[in-house]
């Protein structure tokens, strides 16, 4: 049976792991390669590295980090943040990333999804969408949550699936960093409407929240950052608890 994936996310700025609350108030959380190795030991199923400072000048630092991670890490990992062209995506993939995640750039130039799918296959494209409840609708935001787009979450998710995205990483900005639990409704609706896998993200604060998202939605993975960084929830404990609840995990 296919297992539910526990995905550990490392937000990267200037080569260091950082974590913010509601996309602001950033604080340092350690060396990315060391953290990544710890997560692998604890049983993480995948890792995501999101470069939140991504600028053209700093891209070399990111590519260098990806190479270091690829040498050490023997589980799949995704790299995102500032992937805005086929060239940048190629640099990151050739440096050893298994997948790239697209966010703002996909909204600006949706053809990038198709272009990447043609070159590297759908399996390497994770479409990251940050959504927020605005006037009774789930709206898609870009640029680290700063810019509201015209897109509603469901329409955008379906559009990107049609263009060739391999997976959707769905982050609720309202829940992110609050430790109050995943956004069940929007995750449930989008995961049910799509054929590609959906990863729930934003709001994980306890083991019960993972149980909730896996039993109430069709999400095939759940992502968290802060609670793993600071050791509030150990991935090995989380997996044992989910097994006890008959949720299939590795």
């Amino acid at each position: 049976m296919l297992k539910k994936r526990i995905i550990s996310c490392l937000d990267i700025r200037d080569g260091r792991t950082v974590k913010g609350i509601n996309f602001i108030n950033i604080r340092d959380a350690g060396d990315p390669v060391e953290l990544a190795e710890r997560y692998v030991r604890e049983g993480a199923d995948e890792l995501v590295f999101l470069d939140i400072s991504a600028t053209n000048e700093k891209r070399a630092t990111l590519v260098n980090l990806v190479q270091k991670v690829a040498k050490k890490i023997d589980i799949p990992f995704t790299v995102g943040g500032g992937i805005n062209s086929l060239k940048v995506a190629s640099d990151v993939i050739l440096a050893g990333a298994d997948k790239v995640s697209l966010n703002s750039a996909a909204v600006k130039q949706p053809n990038l999804i198709q272009e990447l799918a043609n070159n590297y296959g759908c399996q390497c494209i994770v479409l990251a969408m940050d959504v927020k409840w605005v006037n009774g609708k789930w709206k898609v935001f870009t640029h680290g949550g700063k810019v509201e787009t015209e897109w509603e979450a469901m329409a955008w998710a379906k559009r990107t699936e049609a263009l060739g995205a391999g997976e959707i990483l769905l982050t609720s900005m309202d829940n992110d960093g609050t430790k109050g639990g995943f956004q069940i409704e929007v995750t449930k609706d989008i995961a049910a409407a799509l054929k590609i896998p959906v990863i729930a993200s934003g709001g994980a604060g306890s083991i019960a929240h993972f149980e909730e998202v896996f039993t109430q939605t069709k999400a095939t993975g759940a992502l968290a950052a802060g609670i793993f960084h600071y050791g509030e929830v150990r991935i090995s404990d989380l997996k044992q608890a989910l097994k006890n609840k008959q949720i299939a995990v590795r």
Binding site: K3, I75, P76, Q123, K195, P197
Partner: peptide, 29 residues
């Protein structure tokens, strides 16, 4: 229901040197 098949899934194997020292039903990516 969901395609592609992405993630860790268990395999059962017949005796083969490729699976030496690997428990039955081990998950692979």
């Amino acid at each position: 229901e969901i395609v592609p098949h992405v993630g860790w899934n268990n395999v059962s194997y017949r005796e083969d040197r490729l699976f030496k020292e690997i428990p039955q039903d081990t998950d692979f990516y």
